[in-house]
Structures are given as structure tokens and as C-alpha cells.
Design a protein around this nucleic acid. Structure first.
Lengths: 232, 232
DNA sequence: ATTAAAAGCTGAAATATTTCATGTTATCAA
DNA sequence: TTGATAACATGAAATATTTCAGCTTTTAAT
């Protein structure tokens, strides 16, 4: 990973810097930043590998990544999908020496790998900063937990509805009601077979709830989708 | 909740105090402790109510509690079950003004309700303490996530095996291989019907994996149970 | 441009799961 | 003790889901 070409992108208008400097002195942040590594990943590339040594904290400047658990059988479960700018902390990173999940780029992404030791130093000196970052991480977990709750209670109908709404609201926001995800990825997110996703999406289309052309899915009737998400 | 009778139990040998005093001065802790409320809950009583105003942090001195999500339909999903001594932080409490889950006593329990503002003051003054508590919380989440991962991938066989192992290792530890949980609660934890739990437990018994007399379940062949949990 | 690989699609058979109906056994309070 | 309630148990029918086989379309690489 460290042998990849470093791409230069500006640090001046960095969201992480802006957020951090609400809590820490610019000089302290600059020192921290010096320890971090800027990288670009193409769609499909693995950023962190499940079972590998934890690379510490990671700030996703731009792009979309999935948290993916790989079973021994080879099948995958997507725990959550997030878009930058976002700090990717949590059980996968915070305090854990081994990655529980792989983190894989779903779109071309720019990230900064942050040095754990330097982060700890900064956090210890600025507890309010630490609190803000933990809160940020908890938000990400909460999104994932609501998906689990849908998974535990709903049939595939409801699970897919929940996922489409999540993707629309939290990931592909700011681009109307359409986005592009593969059936296979929806299946790995909803924990069902890809055939079931195909059938369900076709049914949703027949009922006028969504429309799609290839991988591009458009939500037509969001109220109905929300009702299916709630009632199963 | 606050109108309940306060039961006195000693603060001298409190696990939370011991853990806290690794990081903070005894005087600071004592000041914090003064703001907290000691309570006892009987089996079945609700400690925190889903949708209610968050009561801040809670230290479970002794007892067993479940984190329970109640759907509109009235059915429940148990996210996790934990035994004291344990700090119950996490998305349900940390930084959230409304409880996502109910927390209900599964056995008679003794808790301290900690004051959020006093906790923040202590945490800001002792970032290493905050880090330790966050790490503790992340551990609890990790246990819950491994259950989700089993839920997403396994059939009921494997989910129930995973749950029995979790209960044996993390909740009813230190009491051999047997414990007492209702079929209904296992069903709510495994996200399936209680009939399915009954059938599965009977099958496990026929195959010599477990034994049970009423609600008391004993693990006979833990290696086989672990294999089912992984593969099944 | 051609080919290989991956993704999308469909329907039928096999399997898993829930729901329902029914009855038995614990449990708990009056 | 008795009665009410909840939990436990079982089997059959209905439903949901996966698996499989076969096919088309899209995507990516040579």
C-alpha cells in the first residue's frame, strides 16, 4: 500500500483540517499532518484488508467506500457504505490492531492515512477534539445499526427498500434520485442472493416505485419505498 | 425511574471506581460519584426506554441486561446481552439525546446512573480516561457486530449456535457450560420465530450437542457447536 | 474488433422459514 | 390450591428464499 504512487492534492481546503482546527491549534495540526500519507485509490481497490494489521485512522477526502466482511466461504457481507468527506474510525480502526473489515473503494477515492501515535498525542492534548471524533464515529455506527435492525426484522423487500433509501439519502445525496450500484453489491448489503435482488428490483419497477436502466437506479415513489422499509 | 427506592450497596470495592482511579485522581472521582444515583432493578424491569430521553452513562455493577429494539409491530430484536461489571456506553448513550434501544434487566441488577455533564468534565480533564472508556464501548460494539455478521450469513442453525456460544463465553461465564434463557429471548436475539428456536434446540439435543431441562441449557459438545456457528 | 469475464435476467425445483392450530407444561398470584 | 398466563412443544400448510441451469447483455482486456 505504501509503495503506491503518491498523488498530490491540496491540503489548503481540506475538510479534515477545517474540522480539526475547530479544536486544535493549526500548528499542532500541521505537525500531525506531516505524519500522514496522501493516497488515491481506483474503483475496486482495497484500502484496508480484513485480517491485516490495522493502518490506524483514515480520512476519506473524496469518494465512496464499503466496509466488507469476507466469510471463509468466499462470500461477502457489506456492513456499510459511506461517502467522503468522512473520518473512517470505529471498531475497525480505533484501538484495534487487526482489521475486522476490509475497506474497498466503490468509486475513485482520495484518502489520508493518519499516524496513530501522532493522533493519540493530539487527542490527549485536546480532549474536546477526541470527543468530536468519537461522536462522528458513533454516527457511522448508528447508520450501520439501523441497517442491521432492518435486516433482523424485514423480508428482502423491506431490506432492499431500506438500502435504497440509505444509498439515496446518505451516500448518493446531492445527485437527485438516481445512483449506480451493482445488483451484487445490493445483495451483499441486504444479505440475500443476487437473484432475489434482481427479482425484487423488477417487482419494484413494475409497481412504479423505482426505474432503472442497467445499473442506474432511480427512485420514483419515495413515500412508498419508505413504507416498505418500515413495514417489511 | 428516579423515584425508585435507592438501595445502598458499597462504593468501596466498586469496579468502576477501581477502573476509573487508574486514570483520574480519587478526589475528582469522588466529586463525580456524588452526582451519580445508585439503583436496583428486578428481572424484567426496564432501565432505559427506547425513544426516551437519554439518561446518560450507566455503569452496570452486577446483573445481566439486554439491549432491545422494539418494532412498531410490537416484536423485539435483541442487539446484545451483557453482564456486569460493565460500562454501558455506546450509540445508545454516548452523545445521543434519545435512546435507540431499551435496556432491560434479564436478571436482578445493580446500576449507577452517571451524570453526563459531570462525566464530560472529568473526561475533558483526563483524556486517557476517555480513551479507555471509548475503547471499552468499542469492545461491546464489536461483540454485537460479530453477532450481526452471523445473522447476515448463517441459517438459523448457525445463528443459534453463535448465540449459545456468545452466552456461554461472554455472559454466563464462570458457571460451567449451562445457563438459563427463554426460547423467546433466543428467538429475539437470533431474529427468527420461537418455534424455529424450539425445533433447532431439539435437533441439537438429538445430535448430542446440547442438553436441556426446561429453560436450563447445557452445552455438551462445544467443538461441534463452534463448527455449526462457523459453517452454518 | 474480438474475446473473456462479469453482471444481469428468468423460471423451476429444492430448501428454509414462518404462520397457524392445537395441546401440554411451568409459573405466578389470588 | 386454583386459575390465569406465559412458555414450551409439535406438525402441517403457506410463504419466502436459495440454488441451479441456461441464457443475454455489458464491461474490460488483448
Amino acid at each position: 500500500m505504501l509503495s503506491r504512487t503518491e498523488h498530490k492534492f491540496g491540503c489548503e481546503d481540506c475538510e479534515f483540517k477545517k474540522m480539526s482546527c475547530l479544536y486544535v491549534e493549526p500548528d499542532s495540526f500541521e505537525e500531525f499532518r506531516q505524519q500522514s500519507i496522501k493516497l488515491s485509490f481506483s474503483k475496486g481497490e482495497t484500502i484496508f484488508k480484513q485480517g491485516g494489521k490495522s493502518g490506524g485512522l483514515l480520512f476519506l477526502h473524496e469518494g465512496i467506500v464499503k466496509f466488507c466482511y469476507q466469510y471463509d466461504s468466499g462470500s461477502n457481507y457489506i456492513m456499510t457504505i459511506v461517502r467522503g468527506p468522512k473520518l473512517l474510525g470505529g471498531a475497525n480502526l480505533f484501538f484495534k490492531s487487526v482489521n475486522i473489515f476490509s475497506i474497498t473503494a466503490m468509486e475513485d477515492s482520495r484518502v489520508c492515512m493518519l499516524d496513530s501515535a501522532a493522533f493519540m498525542k493530539l487527542a490527549i492534548g485536546n480532549p474536546a477534539y477526541l470527543l468530536a471524533l468519537v461522536e462522528n464515529t458513533m454516527d457511522m455506527f448508528q447508520d450501520a445499526i439501523f441497517n442491521f435492525i432492518s435486516l433482523a426484522h424485514n423480508h428482502v423487500n423491506g431490506r432492499i427498500a431500506t438500502i435504497l433509501l440509505y444509498l439515496h439519502k446518505n451516500v448518493y445525496n446531492g445527485q437527485g434520485y438516481s445512483f449506480t450500484v451493482s445488483r451484487k453489491e445490493i445483495a451483499e448489503f441486504a444479505a440475500c442472493s443476487h437473484e432475489n435482488v434482481i427479482n425484487t428490483l423488477s417487482r419494484f419497477r413494475k409497481e412504479g416505485i423505482i426505474e432503472f436502466h442497467g445499473k442506474e437506479i432511480e427512485i420514483i415513489n419515495i413515500e412508498l419505498l419508505e413504507e416498505i422499509s418500515r413495514k417489511g
